[in-house]
Design a binder for these strands. Structure first.
Lengths: 187, 187
DNA sequence: GTACGATACGGAGGCCCCCGCCAGTTAGCA
DNA sequence: TGCTAACTGGCGGGGGCCTCCGTATCGTAC
């Protein structure tokens, strides 16, 4: 499959992806595809060919981070304290979502595709997170009716809402803490 | 001030605002200003003159809702149960933010202006909410370190993250409930 | 080493959008 | 009624997204 791709195509793919990472980091989820093409030294049609739609490009840009987070979740599955493991992972996700511009948008928008879409960043993350949540639930450390998808949605929302803050990461972590403890519980 | 405005200017202002409400409801926060002008039967420059920037237009569009929510907060200040009053108000805000397309964006973007900006939708809401939060805090019904701004940010985030969901309102309310109770508390 | 078919490329054109400037027009006042 | 200033709408520039299509390049078979 990948070998049936021509060598120049693979070269361009890599070059575009590298530029896209920089541009998204600099300008967020609505970086200019045109500009990415220009900087990468390819025609705009080539960008569209490799990444049909902004969504696809964002997915590719964040694929590595998603992978890393999935791996982290897997590693945490055997941790001694299920509740702490879950919290740790959520904090890590918050870090990524709050600091990597565009990632929260990518996660939020991915949600409207079919939930079964294996390509979806959100679905992949939810799948990786599920075991952690189940373990925490069995230990009675989370409310019974919370799902992995819920948690990812909440973190995504926090990241989106704090994006325009000064020091978004700190604010996001504060709000995550609030969400975890519950705003309504008595002190 | 408002009387020094010419009659036709006021007419156009009202017409543009009415069209803008429909367009924003239909296409969300990034409705086309050009299109609004066309539908309203005025030049695009006229829209720009009355509402310098998309932000200003969104503020005007949602001003009534903001006003209504502020009034509601004032009315709830004397309610018997401070905790229930706060919850009710948050549910109302969630309703608005989740069903009125673009409102969540408006709130989130408003946050990056100076916090003291009285024109800011978010600031106005926070100001109206403050007494409710204080009363609930005094009654020990909320965690001590939560502020009105925090709560608005959380609801805004939930609305943003559930925007692309089927049935966003239901999902938003579910997540609000989760946030209120705390995801991490044991069942 | 060459010639051929398939594949990928990239520039041009269409369409839309936001923005700022302009002279014309109209409302309100004397 | 006539004047003045505020208000108006159209136009052009700059940019972005998307599609089409002729062309250059790659990989392979001879």
């Amino acid at each position: 499959m990948a070998d049936q791709q021509r060598a120049d195509a693979r070269r361009n793919y890599a070059r575009i992806l590298a530029v896209a990472e920089q541009e998204v980091a600099a300008h967020g989820a609505d970086a200019s595809l045109e500009r990415i093409a220009r900087v990468a030294g390819v025609g705009s049609a080539t960008v569209r060919r490799h990444f049909p739609g902004r969504r696809a490009l964002l997915r590719a840009v964040f694929a590595e981070r998603i992978e890393a987070l999935s791996a982290r979740a897997a590693a945490l599955t055997d941790a001694a304290d299920p509740a702490a493991a879950l919290r740790d992972w959520l904090a890590a996700l918050t870090d990524y979502a709050a600091s990597a511009r565009g990632m929260a948008d990518a996660l939020a928008q991915d949600r409207l595709t079919e939930p079964e879409d294996v390509q979806s960043c959100a679905a992949k993350l939810a799948g990786a997170l599920e075991p952690l949540v189940e373990r925490a639930a069995r230990a009675g450390a989370v409310t019974a009716d919370v799902t992995a998808a819920d948690l990812i949605t909440l973190v995504t929302g926090i990241a989106l809402a704090t994006e325009h803050h000064p020091d978004p990461a700190a604010e996001a972590h504060r709000l995550l803490d609030l969400t975890w403890r519950g705003t309504g519980s008595a002190a």
